[in-house]
């Protein structure tokens, strides 16, 4: 079970506990609460799968309210509802909708205690190249259309499943390579430049997928960052190391420059959006786009 699955299972458990408490229970067995949370998540997925199937059968990828009402009717068909005997009933007059209206009006509003991070908008896993909430996919799964359902969590793939995927052909090789890389060093994630690895702790502060923006240093950095700016500064022709040839020095500088420019992206995004550190005086970051 992946980290996100554990997280959302815990959230579902809390929501189920809140519902049970609002009904009148004062306590619960742990297994019973787990069962209720499991049924809650399964009911959510059943409704979503049925509504999506209804939309697809109408040659649509996006579901609408009528698909969802039909899905709710199908889910409640076992227990029955008002007006289910009439096969020509319009969805707007469905007894399910009337029951939901009465339910919303009758119960007290118990919102979730804490705000949750909206990871759906940022995608389930950026480094695994899966979809984000806007329907766009990135990484190795960019060829998958956005209306297709998500891939299962790679952590749920067993050793045999992974071997079978690897043997499937060259198209899925990236999937296996990512898994192997993740198994080698789980603390770091891949970057475009293979020499650079970004800490997972830093990735936690970036829940939103952003466009790639490159920055160019215009002015001199402050004294604290002087060592980074030395890479941007034009170096004198004479090398500090007399044994090193001028061509090697230039190559080293360009490599260092590239390395520094790539490494500035996550730091800058974190500073701008989350940590909200003020711009250091003397620095001006100009978008190159």
């Amino acid at each position: 079970m992946g980290d996100s699955q554990i997280f959302y299972s815990a959230i579902a458990r809390i929501a189920a506990a809140q519902i049970c408490q609002s009904v009148g229970f004062t306590g619960s067995q742990s297994k019973a609460l787990d069962a209720v949370a499991n049924i809650l998540t399964r009911h959510l997925q059943t409704l979503a799968r049925s509504a999506s199937s209804n939309a697809n059968s109408s040659r649509r990828t996006h579901s609408n309210a009528f698909d969802l009402i039909h899905a709710i009717e199908q889910a409640n068909s076992i227990h029955g509802f008002r007006g289910s005997s009439n096969p020509h009933r319009p969805f707007s007059r469905s007894g399910i909708v009337k029951d939901l209206v009465q339910f919303v009006q009758s119960i007290d509003e118990i919102p979730f205690a804490q705000p949750l991070p909206r990871t759906k908008r940022s995608g389930f896993s950026r480094r695994r190249g899966q979809s984000n909430g806007d329907g766009r996919r990135c990484g190795s799964h960019s060829h998958v259309p956005p209306w297709a359902p998500e891939f299962p969590d790679p952590s749920t793939c067993g050793e045999g499943a992974r071997r079978s995927v690897c043997g499937g052909g060259d198209q899925l090789r990236g999937f296996c390579v990512e898994e192997e890389t993740r198994a080698v060093d789980d603390r770091f994630v891949e970057h475009r430049d293979p020499e650079i690895r970004i800490d997972k702790q830093m990735m936690k502060f970036l829940p939103i997928e952003r466009q790639r923006v490159r920055f160019k240093m215009v002015k001199e950095l402050s004294a604290k960052r002087g060592e980074i700016n030395t890479a941007k500064r034009p170096k004198p022709q004479q090398s500090s190391n007399p044994k090193q040839s001028p061509t090697d020095s230039e190559e080293c500088n360009t490599r260092h420059e590239k390395h520094t420019a790539n490494y500035q992206e996550p730091i800058t995004a974190i500073q701008r959006d989350y940590l909200q550190i003020r711009n250091i005086t003397g620095d001006q970051l100009v978008s190159v786009q």
Binding site: S52, F124, G133, W147, A148
Partner: peptide, 8 residues
């Protein structure tokens, strides 16, 4: 959970 089921 609905995104996992293909609901868009």
């Amino acid at each position: 959970y609905i995104a996992k089921s293909g609901f868009q």
